[in-house]
Design a protein around this nucleic acid. Structure first.
Lengths: 252, 252
DNA sequence: CTTAATCATGCGTGTTATTGCGCGTTGTGG
DNA sequence: CCACAACGCGCAATAACACGCATGATTAAG
C-alpha cells in the first residue's frame, strides 16, 4: 500500500463513514498510529478534513465543493440514501430515479445483493457496474443533461413494460400543499410514468427538500407510499405531512 | 521492449490495478528503477497519472474507480479516438459504440460541436454530459456489465428507429479472414444491429486489435466503410486488409 | 560507409520522504 | 484532582528520489 494511496483511502472512509478513528485505522492498515495521525494532520492542513481528538471529521462547509464536483452526495443525502437502501430487499425489482440522492442509494446498496434495478439514469447504471448481484436495465431516450436522466416520449414508452415492487423517487421539493415537485416538465412526466409502474413509491427527501417547492408537480402526496428523510423528527412540515396521512420514514 | 510500448503498458497496468509501484515494475520489466521513474515522471507531466512516493496513482482519486472500470484509455486508444473524432462533422447523427476506445472518442469530441449522438453505453452518455453541443440519445436495455453497454432484444429493438450517418464501432479483433470479432454473442448482435442503422461504419482499431480474433463475429470486413488505426503504416495485416479492399484510416 | 547526433539506459551521489519509537505534554472522563 | 489515552515532537534508520554523467544503441547526415 502506497502512502498516497492510504491517504486517499482515509478520505474515502471519511466520506463513507463520516468520521475517522486513528487507532482503528492504524490497526486495519497495519501501520503505527503515528503514521495515521501524520496523515490526518496533513489532510487537515490541506483542508480536506477536520482534525479532532481521536481521529478526524469531515470539513463542514467545504464538503459542498467536493460534492458538486465529483457527484458526491452530502452527508444528509447519504443518510437518506442509506435508509432508502434498507427498503430494498433481496430479489426485488426496483425502479431507481436519477439525481445525486438516487445515485447515493445505488452506491449504498450491498454489492452482492441480488436485485433487479431499472433506471433511466446512465450515472446510476454506471455506479451499479460494481454491484455483481444487480441485474440492471436502462430505460433509453433523450438524455436530459441537467439532471443526467433520459426522459421524453421514448423514455416514457420504454417504462411501460416494467412491473416494479418499489420506486425510489427523487424530487427537488416536498410540500404539504403542492405535493412533490421538480424543475422540468418532461422529467416530472417521466417520474409519474415510473411511479405508475411500481407497487410502492418512496420519496427520497433529504432535509433541504422538506417544505420546498419547484415549478412542476410530479405527484400529490397521497400517491406515495412514504417519504424517506433525515429532517428532525419534530420538523413542523413533517408533522403537516403526517397529519395529511403521508407515512414518514426516518433516516435515524 | 520499446520505451513507448513500456509506457503504454504502464498505463494499462494503472488502469487494471489502480496503482503503479515503481520497484515492482522495474523488477518485472527487467529495467532499472530509474527508467520506470523517468517514465512515470513523463506520464505525470503529460497528465496521464499522478506521481506519488513509491510509484503512481490515477490522475485523481475521483477517477480512480473510473480507471479500474476501464475508463482511462491508453495512448494508443487515444490516438485512434482523436482520428475517429475528426470523422464527426457538425450536425451529423453518430452512433457511438461502448468500450474504452469509444469512450475516448466521446471525450475527444469538441465540447461545443453540434452533433446528435446515439449510444448504448451509459458510460459514453455520462461522458457526453460535458458536451453542451451534443444531443444525446440512450438506447435502453439490459446492461451487460463486462463492457458496460446495453444489449439484448430490447436494445436491438430500440435501435431500429435510428437513422445515423456514422457508426463508430469498437471491437476486440480485426482479422483479414475472420473479420471483426468480439467476446460476447449478444454484444455482437447489438453491434450488427447498430451497423445496419447507419450509412457508414468505421471500426476503432487500436494497434493491439489488429490481427487478433475473438469468439464471435460482428461483421465481415466488406461491410465496413473503413478502419481507423494507429498501427504502423506498413503493418503486414494492414496490407492484407488493403488488398482485401478495406479502406484504412491512419491515426498518425 | 563513416561520422555525428540523439536518445534511452544504468549507476553513483547527495537529497528528501516516510516510518516507528521514545519522551514529555495535553485533552478527556471519572 | 487523577488516571489514561491521545497527542506532538524529535530522532535515527530506511527507502525512494532527482540529478549528472558515461555508455551503448539507433538514426541522420555527410
Amino acid at each position: 500500500m502506497l502512502p498516497a494511496q492510504r491517504r486517499d483511502l482515509l478520505l474515502t472512509r471519511l466520506e463513507r463513514d463520516g468520521r475517522l478513528v486513528a487507532k482503528d485505522l492504524a490497526a486495519e492498515l497495519g501501520v503505527a498510529e503515528d503514521s495515521v495521525r501524520r496523515d490526518l494532520r496533513e489532510l487537515a492542513a490541506a483542508g480536506l478534513c477536520q482534525r479532532v481528538y481521536g481521529g478526524a471529521l469531515p470539513v463542514s462547509p467545504a464538503v459542498a465543493d467536493y460534492a458538486t464536483r465529483g457527484g458526491v452526495a452530502t452527508e444528509s443525502k447519504r443518510r437518506v440514501a442509506a435508509a432508502a437502501a434498507r427498503l430494498v430487499r433481496p430479489d426485488m425489482t426496483v425502479l431507481l430515479d436519477g439525481g445525486t440522492t438516487a445515485l447515493a442509494v445505488a452506491r449504498a446498496l450491498p454489492h452482492d445483493l441480488r436485485v433487479t434495478v431499472v433506471t433511466h439514469s446512465p450515472t446510476v447504471a454506471v455506479a451499479l457496474l460494481e454491484h455483481p448481484g444487480a441485474e440492471v436495465f436502462v430505460l433509453g431516450g433523450r438524455l436530459f443533461k441537467h439532471s443526467a436522466v433520459t426522459s421524453g416520449a421514448a423514455a416514457v414508452e420504454a417504462a411501460q413494460w416494467v412491473h416494479a415492487d418499489l420506486f425510489l423517487l427523487g424530487v427537488t421539493g416536498v410540500h404539504h400543499e403542492t405535493g412533490l415537485t421538480t424543475g422540468d416538465a418532461d422529467e416530472a412526466a417521466m417520474k409519474r410514468a415510473l411511479a405508475a409502474r411500481s407497487a410502492d413509491t418512496y420519496v427520497l427527501a433529504s432535509s433541504e427538500k422538506i417544505g420546498a417547492a419547484s415549478p412542476f408537480t410530479v405527484l400529490p402526496l397521497s400517491e406515495v407510499s412514504g417519504i424517506v428523510t433525515d429532517a428532525p423528527e419534530d420538523h413542523p412540515v413533517l408533522d403537516g405531512l403526517r397529519r395529511g396521512g403521508t407515512p414518514v420514514v426516518m433516516a435515524d
